[in-house]
């Protein structure tokens, strides 16, 4: 498959992250369900407050993206796209709520995207095409989730909340340029949630080799082949982060070092933010990257597929007061399982 690259060069004009304030320690979950015997996949995860959902978190990340995108008025956005598996409504777009709050309505394309944890990067890839074809000068692609895990299930330890927004625009005004991307998908049933079900199901260890590792390595190798690049050509590499072990292992399999992966690795502090996971890792890297640095981004979504991008840093970022991703990571208040249950609205008040 040929490298996907638009006719017109495009890049990231602005970006923004969001993570809620609350954290739940894995040890707290393990204490409740396993007498403390659980092998915890992360240290802690982020938990949304009672008044937060994918719409509110997307709005804040998008406002941060617009702050960094000097001179781009909200009504210049040709698209507002939100990728998530936890849209607040089953029927009614999240994207119109976000577009309205940003001031992007009414002359904009709004849509919600869905592909488990890959919903954000597929919106990003589409935004590259949308701007790259000349249909619009600017498109906003968001990956955001308030993830659900069944109480006591392995996913409860990692199902976090947060994500990122990327304002895609012409390369001339971008802080980083997209050098090309590939997508690799198969029908692999490693994780799903049926209609009207509250919690997702997963196929245990099957989620590893045939799902996560196969799709990420296949997409990344295809991108490297098509661009003629090698792991050493990249300063940073970000892989989807469902737990602390997988991204380091897949990076090692591909020939990347810990030094390339760790700057974008947030899962130990905020958990798996699903559609936001690899994208918020990219924002943490953009906060520290220098002009000339090359960045590899590879997402993974169950069901299953990976999008891989090569990104070249062009400019030093002017933040215009937008908080850094690590500011959100540091802003943390530990809560206990009882408060967590309250935030999940597990108690009947009436």
């Amino acid at each position: 498959m040929a490298l996907m690259k638009p006719v017109r060069s495009v890049g990231i004009v602005g970006y923004g992250a969001y993570v809620p304030r609350y954290r739940l320690a894995s040890a707290e979950i393990g204490e409740l369900w396993t007498d403390g015997n659980a092998i915890t996949p992360v240290k802690q995860k982020s938990v949304p407050g009672l008044d937060e959902d994918v719409a509110t978190m997307s709005i804040e990340a998008a406002r941060n993206a617009l702050r960094r995108a000097t001179g781009v008025a909200p009504d210049k956005l040709g698209a507002v796209w939100v990728g998530s598996e936890s849209h607040p409504y089953a029927v009614k777009p999240t994207s119109t709520i976000v577009a309205e709050a940003l001031g992007a309505t009414p002359h904009t394309q709004a849509a919600d995207w869905q592909f488990a944890c890959k919903a954000g990067t597929e919106a990003l890839q589409a935004a590259i095409g949308f701007v790259g074809s000349g249909m619009s000068d600017y498109a906003l692609a968001i990956g955001m989730d308030a993830a659900q895990g069944r109480p006591g299930d392995a996913l409860e330890y990692t199902a976090g909340a947060g994500g990122a927004a990327f304002l895609v625009g012409p390369a001339e005004s971008a802080i980083a340029e997209f050098e090309g991307s590939v997508s690799y998908v198969t029908d692999t049933p490693d994780f799903w949630r049926r209609q009207h079900e509250r919690f997702p199901e997963h196929s245990g260890r099957f989620t590893g080799e045939p799902a996560y590792f196969h799709h990420i390595t296949s997409a990344a190798r295809e991108l490297l082949d098509q661009t003629g690049l090698h792991p050493a050509d990249f300063r940073y590499a970000i892989f989807h982060q469902p737990n602390a072990k997988f991204p380091l292992k897949v990076g090692e399999d591909l020939g990347f070092t810990r030094a390339q992966i760790e700057p974008g690795l947030l899962v130990n502090e905020i958990g798996n933010t699903y559609a936001g996971s690899s994208m918020i890792g990219l924002t943490a890297v953009l906060d520290i990257a220098a002009p000339g640095d090359r960045i590899l981004l590879v997402s993974f979504g169950s069901g299953a597929g990976s999008d891989a991008f090569s990104i070249r840093m062009k400019e030093t970022v002017d933040h215009h007061g937008a908080p850094a991703t690590r500011d959100y990571v540091r802003r943390s208040l530990m809560i206990n399982y009882a408060t967590y249950s309250r935030f999940k609205e597990n108690y009947k008040l009436n």
Binding site: Y89, P323, A324
Partner: peptide
């Protein structure tokens, strides 16, 4: 329906 609107929070620290 879900009703969204403004609330206020302590100002977040800006960039480094």
């Amino acid at each position: 329906m879900l009703v969204y609107g403004y609330k206020f929070r302590p100002v977040l620290a800006g960039p480094r």
